[in-house]
Design a protein around this nucleic acid. Structure first.
Lengths: 113, 113
DNA sequence: AGTATTACATACCTTTAGGTTATTACCTTA
DNA sequence: TAAGGTAATAACCTAAAGGTATGTAATACT
């Protein structure tokens, strides 16, 4: 095999790299929902009721693999897994704030949105 | 007809609204490439050689319709059209800066990216 | 008459993101 | 023994994003 592991495409542009991680439909909402807390899988499901389970774990896995989230699995039954933001992940919170402010202003200025 | 004009879906969340505009593959790159200048269509094509013409006009149209870009068409032949950032559009530049910084740090910390 | 220039349109196709539903592993407790 | 609770997986499908290729309008210049 030439290339085995599926990794995000090496991108020269740091903005594209960041967007590959936080640009999707759910990433920011998940990151925002975790914030400074530790959140269990089921807890996130309840916090974001419109997300499908598939997308939730898929995103959690991606964010974990890219160093945005910590994942702590307790050896218990029924399973218990806690997600929290890493040092890098915490850096996204102010970006989300900025985008939120921008979005709010945009809606105010543009009745079409 | 019930709903005629195609508009971006009314979204309760300002972050989603913002992402619908700047979350795609090309929007930020286009906005960044315009910056504080006036840029012609062909000029942008040259600045972003990897974008297809279709995506370029498509995005320029979307950004114009959502109040991010000004479009000034000169009545000349061959055509001449200049795009520039609106007041709202300019607000995206610092967001892009933030994301760029974040992406750069992320790449530094994560050799997988 | 023919060619070049420039912004844009249109038809068609491929790829990716995201959604739906069902299923599993494991232990505890009724 | 059966049911319940939790995190995760797999198969399958739809819709949307994006890419390729070609065409058009209008005029000036040769």
């Amino acid at each position: 095999m030439i290339e085995n592991k599926k990794i995000l495409k090496k991108d020269t542009c740091p903005v594209s790299t960041a967007l590959a991680i936080i640009g999707g439909k759910w990433s920011m909402l998940i990151i925002f929902s975790i914030g400074n807390e530790k959140r269990r899988f089921g807890e996130l499901k309840r916090l974001i009721p419109t997300i499908s389970e598939k997308m939730l774990i898929q995103e959690l896995k991606k964010l974990t693999n890219t160093g945005i989230l910590n994942r702590k699995a307790y050896k218990e039954i029924p399973p218990k897994v806690e997600y929290s933001l890493t040092k890098d992940g915490l850096k996204i919170l102010p970006i989300i704030d900025q985008i939120k402010i921008f979005g709010t202003e945009l809606i105010k200025n543009n009745s079409n949105l």
